[in-house]
Amino acid sequence: MGSARKVRSDMPNAGEDLTGIQSGLDDFEAGRFREFEEFAQAQRRKYNLPTTP
């Protein structure tokens, strides 16, 4: 199987995409993340969504 780093020529922005994904993985491994519930609460406030399903 091919490497995840192999970029298809028909995907011109794939390099940028991979850089962004790697950055997110690096942040996660370094402990720079927040719990899902904190994220969800912020999104509900931002978009004025109800707090109960």
Rank of each mutant, 00 (worst) to 15 (best):
R5D: 11
G20T: 06
N13M: 06
S3W: 07
A40V: 08
F36D: 08
G20L: 03
T51R: 12
S3R: 05
E35T: 11
N13T: 15
Q43Y: 15
Q43V: 09
K46W: 07
T51S: 09
N13H: 11
S9I: 11
Q22T: 07
G31Q: 00
T51A: 09
P12Y: 02
F28A: 14
F33E: 01
E35L: 13
Q41E: 07
T51I: 07
E16F: 12
M1R: 14
G20D: 09
L25P: 02
P12E: 02
F36T: 15
R44F: 05
P12L: 04
A42E: 14
E29C: 03
D17M: 09
L49D: 03
V7E: 09
P53R: 04
T52I: 10
D27R: 00
F28K: 04
R32M: 02
G2T: 15
D27T: 04
T52Q: 06
L49G: 00
A4L: 10
E29P: 05
S3E: 12
D26G: 03
A40Y: 10
R32H: 04
K6F: 15
V7C: 03
D26S: 01
I21N: 04
R45H: 10
L25F: 01
E38K: 11
E29S: 13
Q43E: 11
G24M: 09
M11Q: 12
S3K: 07
R8K: 10
R32K: 08
L18Q: 06
D10G: 02
R8T: 03
A4F: 14
E38P: 06
E16D: 12
P53G: 12
S23N: 03
I21R: 02
I21C: 03
T51N: 13
Q41I: 10
G31S: 00
A40L: 14
F36Q: 09
Y47V: 00
D17A: 15
V7G: 03
R45I: 08
S3F: 04
L18M: 10
P53L: 07
V7T: 08
L18C: 09
G2M: 13
T52G: 06
P50C: 00
A42C: 10
M11A: 10
R45T: 09
Q22F: 04
M11N: 13
A4Y: 11
Y47M: 00
F39G: 14
M11K: 12
L18R: 04
F39A: 14
L25W: 07
D17Y: 13
L18S: 11
S9P: 04
A40F: 13
K46A: 10
G24I: 06
R44E: 05
A30D: 03
F36M: 14
P12S: 03
Y47A: 00
L18Y: 00
D17F: 09
D10L: 05
E37Q: 05
G2W: 15
L25T: 01
F33L: 07
R5V: 11
I21V: 09
Q41H: 08
G15W: 08
E29N: 04
A4M: 13
G2K: 13
G31L: 02
E35A: 12
R34Y: 07
G15K: 13
